[in-house]
């Protein structure tokens, strides 16, 4: 269990993270979602006892990040995949992982077994002796994940593990995160990708220095949804606009021959909208649904906060 209580970090007078409070249950994936500079990395660094907090506290199991003795215990039960993979490029994948196993004090036999198992699971056993400098970004990220697992930690901190990866590599990494969840690991993952957060997290916290919203993806979707229905027409007439206003109170924008309508529930609202448009002689060329981007949900969350 991870308890975060009023966790705050200031640099000079500037608050990078301000009063975070949340809990992560065992076996859960918690996503910290926020744009660049939101304080995601700073939060994970405080939790991993890499930097000190300014105020507040966090407890990981029964250990407090504020206590120096505890900080060693915390670091021995967590694994960190930092924003930058931070591998030793000249060394082989095997050596990179084995080095960490040694640091965690894993006996040699078990280390060998663990390393083999991890590399096999991630499909890297065949290239275990190649210097990681020769690996693709996706492979490096997998080695970084394997390395963070070298001591079979209960808790994993992943700082934007799929940023900078191509979609295919990102999927592989996401799948391995889900596997880890199935193995019962507790995971905090930083991301600026809403879609990713929705797909893998049990709980999402939207962060912008402060925690703006928190909840399950479904919960957030309901409370923050701003799906867009985009309707391309032959022509946008006043009659069409009036017809839409008559059946829906949704916000909408006109962009040339395109209507952008902010709907809450596309399933029920879209047919009504289309019917209204065609009933006044509108010719619909195309209808598409645009899921909210992280930014839109995030902006909405900020607006609601005010």
């Amino acid at each position: 269990m991870i308890y975060v209580d009023g966790l705050t970090k200031t640099f000079g007078g500037f608050a990078a993270v301000d009063g975070l409070t949340f809990q992560v249950k065992d076996g859960e994936i918690f996503g910290l979602l926020g744009p660049n500079g939101a304080g995601k990395t700073t939060t994970i660094r405080m939790l991993a006892c890499l930097i000190s907090k300014t105020s507040g506290d966090a407890r990981i199991d029964d250990f407090s990040i504020s206590n120096k003795e505890d900080s060693f215990k915390i670091r021995s039960i967590i694994g960190l995949v930092a924003e930058n993979v931070g591998l030793y490029e000249e060394l082989s994948a095997y050596k990179n992982i084995d080095f960490y196993g040694k640091l965690y004090g894993i006996p040699e036999n078990q280390r060998k077994e663990n390393t083999k198992h991890l590399l096999e699971e991630l499909g890297l056993w065949g290239v275990k002796d190649r210097p990681v400098g020769t690996f693709s970004k996706g492979m490096k990220q997998k080695v970084a994940i394997a390395r963070a697992l070298s001591h079979d930690p209960k808790i994993l901190f992943l700082d934007e593990p799929t940023a900078n990866l191509d979609p295919e590599a990102a999927k592989v990494v996401r799948d391995s995160i889900l596997n880890l969840k199935n193995e019962g690991k507790t995971i905090i993952v930083n991301t600026h990708n809403l879609d990713e957060a929705q797909r893998i997290c049990n709980t999402i916290g939207i962060l912008k220095t402060k925690l703006i919203a928190i909840g399950s993806p479904e919960h957030l979707k309901e409370s923050l949804q701003s799906d867009k229905t985009v309707i391309d027409l032959e022509e946008v007439t006043d009659r069409i606009v009036a017809a839409i206003k008559a059946v829906s109170s949704a916000q909408f924008e006109i962009d040339g021959r395109r209507l952008v309508i902010y709907v809450k529930d596309p399933q029920t609202e879209n047919p009504v909208l289309i019917k209204a448009i065609t009933s006044v002689g509108g010719n619909v060329i195309a209808v598409s649904q645009v899921s909210p981007t992280m930014e839109e949900v995030y902006l909405k969350a900020v607006r609601e906060k005010r």
Binding site: F72, L80, V81, A82, N84, G86, L87, E89, L103, Y104
Partner: peptide, 14 residues
């Protein structure tokens, strides 16, 4: 350059 200090510092080493 390799940014390897951050993960290293996250291990139980002083």
């Amino acid at each position: 350059i390799q940014k390897s200090l951050e993960p290293l510092l996250a291990t139980p080493i002083s």
